[in-house]
Simulated assay, not measured.
Amino acid sequence: MGHRIGICFALACLFVLYQSVPSRAAGVLITQEEASLPPPKGAVGVDRRGVTRGPKIELLSGTDNIQSPTHFQLKFLSFGGATIDVTSVKVIYLRTPNVDLTERLRAFVQPAGIDMPDASLPPGEHMLRVDLKDSDGRPGSTSFVLKVAR
């Protein structure tokens, strides 16, 4: 009988743990309230290109006429034998004030990139900046605008 109680307790613990883990299938990337914040003055999306051994960030999902929810995907590239430091990944929604989306995306960050299958965003233009470092401490950053259809 003690064995059965132990198994039931273990299953109950697993169920509680499963319920507390955020779903990797869907999530809110940007809320309507955050989208209503004013954009920063003079902000433009920038793709920094140049000769550097620092990591690169590529947006794999589209930027124009996106339907929400969308598959939000970024690819991280490292060079010279370095690896991506996933603890350094930071995603910022450029508004006044800026909104840190990092913790919201933490469950979707992997050494190869960010893969959020069903990211929910309100209609409009949303400028994001992604910063990271590689295992050698070299920084990488990119900014882009997601245009979500109404």
Rank of each mutant, 00 (worst) to 15 (best):
M1S: 09
H3R: 14
A12S: 15
L14C: 15
L14W: 09
F15Y: 08
L17Y: 04
Q19N: 10
Q19T: 06
Q19H: 02
P22D: 14
P22S: 14
S23L: 03
R24S: 13
R24K: 15
G27K: 00
T31N: 11
T31K: 06
Q32I: 11
Q32C: 06
E33H: 04
S36Y: 04
L37F: 12
P38G: 03
P38F: 02
P39F: 04
K41E: 04
G42A: 09
A43I: 12
A43W: 09
D47K: 12
D47H: 11
R48I: 13
R48M: 13
G50L: 10
G54L: 01
P55C: 03
P55V: 07
K56Q: 07
L59Y: 08
T63D: 10
N65H: 14
N65E: 04
Q67W: 06
S68M: 04
S68G: 12
P69R: 10
P69H: 02
T70P: 09
F72P: 03
Q73I: 12
F76P: 04
F76M: 13
L77G: 05
S78V: 13
G80T: 08
G80V: 11
A82K: 07
A82Q: 09
I84G: 06
V86K: 00
V86R: 00
T87C: 06
S88D: 14
V89L: 06
K90P: 13
Y93K: 01
L94S: 12
R95I: 06
T96A: 05
T96S: 15
P97K: 06
P97Q: 10
N98Q: 15
N98C: 11
V99P: 13
T102P: 10
T102K: 08
E103R: 15
R104L: 05
R106I: 03
R106W: 05
A107N: 14
V109T: 11
V109S: 04
Q110P: 00
A112N: 11
I114A: 04
D115A: 01
D115R: 00
P117L: 10
L121D: 04
L121Q: 03
P123V: 12
P123M: 09
G124F: 07
H126G: 13
R129H: 04
G137I: 13
R138F: 00
P139Y: 06
P139T: 07
G140S: 07
T142S: 01
T142A: 10
S143K: 14
L146N: 03
L146V: 08
L146F: 01
L146E: 05
V148N: 02
